[in-house]
Design a protein around this nucleic acid. Structure first.
Lengths: 101, 101
DNA sequence: TCTCTAAATAAGTATTCGCTTATATAGTAG
DNA sequence: CTACTATATAAGCGAATACTTATTTAGAGA
């Protein structure tokens, strides 16, 4: 992997809020509205962060009605895999008990 | 590793110039003056970038007269190890042929 | 001592980043 | 159609980033 591409991947994950998003996603699909509660930031801020992860090829999206679900890509670079492996695994950020699902 | 500490490590390596510094260091110790040629930025800029890597615990320094040599830490976190493993390995940034050594 | 060199620090600046609020888009339901 | 909801986009702003040049610190050597 060349240095500029590596830089792009690292910049995409080098942020506490985006790392929390990834931590949530290790358990499976999550919809945008759940992230708002988890991060304590506004809905547009969540959308913007998810967009960055999407543009870096780290997450994929699936639309279902008015909702949008995000999940980890199946083909992650070794570096991103290593990052995800370090994330705490006990995340309560799923649709169970949430308003939208 | 907690998310804030992970963020700190990732921010430290999420920059093309710092990745180039690390790429040079995979072959062993390098002194500051050599990095100036490699990166094509000013000497103070190199010092500032090395300081960030040092503060993140990724590199160590050794002083010898007026020169200062930097090397990779022996105890790198799994994520930083993964990053370094992805760096190109054919780096010509050592004291051979350089002005200072 | 004085001078030279290597590296670090200080100060200034342009760019990038991550949030905010306001607005637009798209789908559901009546 | 209108009304409501979920998400995305636009615009603006303060903080952080990464350079620059100028200066300081520290060691080597005449």
């Amino acid at each position: 992997m060349d240095i500029l591409q590596l830089e792009r991947q690292l910049k995409a994950v080098a942020d506490a809020n985006r790392l929390k998003l990834l931590a949530c996603l290790t358990d499976g699909e999550v919809c945008v509205c759940d992230f708002v509660d988890v991060l304590g930031i506004s809905q547009p801020a969540v959308s913007q962060q998810l967009k960055k992860l999407k543009e870096a090829g780290i997450v994929l999206e699936r639309k279902e009605g008015t909702w949008k679900y995000y999940r980890l890509s199946e083909s992650l670079s070794p570096v991103v895999q290593a990052v995800i492996a370090q994330l705490p695994g006990d995340n309560r950020c799923h649709c169970e008990g949430s308003s939208c699902c």
